[in-house]
Amino acid sequence: MAKPKLKEHHINRDWCKGCGICVEFCPKKVLELDKQDKVVAVHFTNCICCKLCELRCPDLAIEIETEL
């Protein structure tokens, strides 16, 4: 199976409560919280589409769209 390729990080800013769980446990340190404590995919080129952020988000605020 080919590695999935990132299309987009869909982040629902209305739902994100800025707990930082996704930021902390991202293996490639792709995510950061902005000044409003909302998550942003700053280093999205590093994303390996493991989707751990999506799976761990307590607010269902992250969705990783891949091209595969």
Partner: peptide
């Protein structure tokens, strides 16, 4: 949504 639970 967003749900009622606290951040984190």
């Amino acid at each position: 949504f967003p749900h009622i639970w606290c951040p984190g």
